[in-house]
Design a binder for these strands. Structure first.
Lengths: 213, 213
DNA sequence: TATAATCAACTAAATAGTTAATTAGTCAGG
DNA sequence: CCTGACTAATTAACTATTTAGTTGATTATA
């Protein structure tokens, strides 16, 4: 019953702005997103954006912080259900894959951010990213101590996992388009679903971590 | 001696514009690169850019086509020195790694392009990218036929290789910064050089392609 | 009635692209 | 070896549009 069909509500307005901003920033990037277009999309006056988020950069920070928090929470929650490093690793990869697929703005935003070395990266976002990597890194380290993983360079493996997943998501339209061409014949996995891909990555990462004798 | 200290030369001017454009596009992205800034950087009048490249998009196409051609030529040239799939695969990864490291604009431009699903991707660039992947894919296929590779999904493996290498290059400054922090302790490979990384990736990719029994 | 939320209308700067004039190089004919 | 005409390269100054951000008034609500 509460909240008689939303009239004036700061929280609702803020959320509206953020969700529209997620859409635009992830599709067009930071620079190509105009505050006029954003205000039209969310149906509020442009001044509201500056009223709540001070300026464009402030809005971007709010967007990134929300998006990173979402994925971090998802992964941490799933992680707590497991205790063996190998299960944790699988859970990490699988959860990230699922999330990235159902929230495709995440890979788009992350890759954009990483491709210009955090030119506009706010400190908070930087911390979140390090925390996420720290968890991954820790899983591998504990696995090595227990003897179930060998020869890991966490940073490289991390990029193998999230780099690949992010690219598989963001390039979906391109891969579809490529599969329809017949001048160069390649299998671009246009019909693979995310579960297959995640399973394959999990299998291969585990194979990499086995003793290579 | 020739060319008495370069005065009026279309080719020189075009090259000047392109190399400045590579710098700006790769650092700031397409949208954030202004033609005024570009003209200042290359020391030519802004109208020259439009005289030679018609418009901003035309310049971008010229830039991307040159960059993609460079890497393609490098890889093809090295590829021809080998005949066994395993050597070809190593050569592909190693050459890409070396090139990406010495021409860091390539990873930046590529990741930006892939992160928005080719929103501004010209047809020619799309072809080049498919050709490069086709070579990689073909190496794996021939390897499988000969029995030296097993269980490959070329698209995923391709992104594992170039995704990881591109990210290792573009995130260098971020990884350096992270390694100086001590609130969250992680090894970000801040001191790894590209050869180590390439060797590790080669080793791991080969391990993945071994029979998993 | 006080305050928080909303808006229309504005500003100043930056932007991609244009135009018309001006150079500099080339090359044929004297 | 000039000269002048032709062309290609270059320029300054301009336009029209878009941009982030502001302001001061106006609502709604508690």
């Amino acid at each position: 019953m509460s909240k008689k069909i939303q009239k004036r509500d700061a929280e609702v307005s803020k959320a509206l702005i953020i969700s529209s901003a997620i859409e635009l920033f992830s599709q067009k990037g930071y620079a190509s997103t105009s505050m006029d277009e954003l205000s039209k999309l969310c149906g509020l006056n442009k001044a509201m954006v500056f009223y709540y988020f001070k300026n464009k950069k402030g809005l971007y920070e709010a967007v990134m912080s929300q998006v990173l928090n979402e994925i971090q929470k998802s992964i941490l929650k799933e992680n707590q259900k497991h205790s063996k490093p190998i299960d944790e690793l699988e859970s990490f990869i699988y959860t990230y894959a699922k999330f990235a697929c159902s929230h495709p703005y995440l890979p788009a935003l992350l890759l954009k951010e990483l491709s210009d070395s955090g030119a506009i990266m706010p400190e908070k976002l930087f911390s979140s990213m390090r925390e996420l990597f720290a968890l991954f890194s820790d899983i591998l380290k504990r696995g090595e101590e227990k003897g179930c993983f060998q020869d890991s360079i966490p940073m490289v493996l991390y990029f193998m996992v999230i780099g690949t997943l992010n690219l598989m998501v963001t390039t979906k339209p391109l891969r579809d388009k490529a599969s329809q061409k017949d001048d160069i014949v390649v299998d671009t996995c246009a019909n693979c679903d995310i579960d297959e891909i995640a399973d394959y990555i999990i299998k291969k990462i585990e194979q990499m971590l086995k003793d290579n004798k």
